[in-house]
C-alpha cells in the first residue's frame, strides 16, 4: 500500500525517518550476522583446513604490508616527537612516547586498517563472487552451512592473527623509531632500548592486543557480511568490496575510541 501523501513541509522528516530506519535495519542485520558467525565458531562442525588456510591468507600474507607500515610509522613518529618535544626540551622522552604510541594505538589501528584494505576487500570479493555464481547455494544443497565453512574460519583466523600481527607491528614500529633515533638523532642505542623497556607496562601492550582482536573480528565480519549479501552480479561484488573496506575502517575507528575510553577508565 502506498503511503498517504505528506504535506511538502514534512517531506524532509520522511527522508530522515527512512534513513534512520534503514540504518537501524542494517545495524540489526549486522548484529544478527555476527551472532550467527560467533555461534558457528563455537559449534561443530569445525573446518580446521579452512581455518589454517585463512590463517595463512589473513595473517602470514599480511606480514609484509603490516611490517612496512609499522617501520615507517615508527620512524616518522620518532622524528615528529623529537621535533615537537624539542619545543619544551623534552626530546629525551621520545623513546617512551614512541613505544606508548605504537603499542597502545598505532600498532593495532594501522595493522587493522591495512587488513581492512587487504583482507576485508578480498573476503568480500571472494564470497560475493561465490554468491553471484550460485556457489553459496550449491554449498547449501551439499548439506554444508556456509556460516560454518566460510564465515567461521575467517572470523576465527582474523581474531587470532591480528593480535599476532600487531605484536609484530609493535616490535617493528619501535625498531623503526630506534633506527631513526640512533642513526639520525644521535641517541645511544642501548639507552634507547633500556628507556623503552623500563617505561613500558605490560598493560600498554596487552590493551593494544585486545583492541587488535576486536579489530580483527570487525575486519573479517565486514568482509563476510558484505560478501554474503552481495547482489547484482559483478557490479554488486564491486559494491560489496567497497562497502566492506569503508565500513570496516569506520568501525575500527569507532571501536578504537570506545575501547580506549574503556581502558583509560579502568
Amino acid at each position: 500500500m502506498d503511503a498517504a501523501p505528506l504535506p511538502a513541509a514534512l517531506t524532509p522528516f520522511r527522508a530522515v525517518g527512512r534513513a534512520v530506519l534503514g540504518l537501524l535495519i542494517q545495524v540489526g542485520s549486522v548484529v544478527l550476522f555476527a551472532a550467527r558467525g560467533v555461534l558457528a565458531m563455537l559449534k561443530p562442525p569445525w573446518f580446521f583446513g579452512q581455518f589454517v588456510r585463512q590463517l595463512q591468507t589473513i595473517g602470514y600474507f599480511s606480514l609484509p604490508v603490516v611490517g612496512l607500515t609499522a617501520v615507517f610509522t615508527g620512524a616518522a613518529l620518532a622524528l615528529n616527537i623529537y621535533t615537537g618535544g624539542g619545543r619544551f626540551n623534552a626530546e629525551q622522552i621520545m623513546p617512551q612516547i614512541v613505544a606508548l604510541g605504537i603499542t597502545r594505538e598505532l600498532g593495532p589501528v594501522l595493522a587493522a586498517l591495512m587488513l581492512a584494505g587487504r583482507v576485508s576487500a578480498a573476503i568480500a570479493a571472494e564470497i560475493g563472487a561465490m554468491r553471484a555464481t550460485e556457489q553459496i547455494d550449491a554449498m547449501q544443497t551439499l548439506s554444508t552451512d556456509p556460516f560454518h565453512y566460510l564465515i567461521a574460519p575467517r572470523l576465527a583466523a582474523a581474531l587470532v592473527t591480528l593480535p599476532l600481527l600487531t605484536m609484530t607491528a609493535d616490535i617493528i614500529g619501535v625498531a623503526g623509531g630506534w633506527f631513526v633515533a640512533t642513526k639520525a638523532l644521535a641517541f645511544n642505542p642501548t639507552v634507547y632500548v633500556r628507556n623503552t623497556w623500563d617505561f613500558l607496562q605490560s598493560w600498554d601492550v596487552v590493551s593494544g592486543l585486545i583492541k587488535a582482536a576486536v579489530f580483527g573480528f570487525i575486519v573479517a565480519l565486514m568482509g563476510c557480511y558484505h560478501g554474503l549479501n552481495a547482489t547484482g552480479g559483478a557490479r554488486g561484488v564491486g559494491r560489496a568490496t567497497t562497502h566492506a573496506v569503508v565500513s570496516a575502517a569506520i568501525l575500527i575507528f569507532a571501536a578504537d575510541y570506545l575501547l580506549t575510553s574503556l581502558f583509560t577508565h579502568r
Partner: peptide, 18 residues
C-alpha cells in the same frame, strides 16, 4: 539438514567451487 542430505542439485551455471 538431514533432509537436505537426501537431495542433489545441478545448477544452471554449474556453480562449481573454483
Amino acid at each position: 539438514a538431514a533432509l537436505s542430505g537426501r537431495l542433489g542439485m545441478l545448477f544452471q551455471s554449474g556453480a562449481l567451487f573454483d
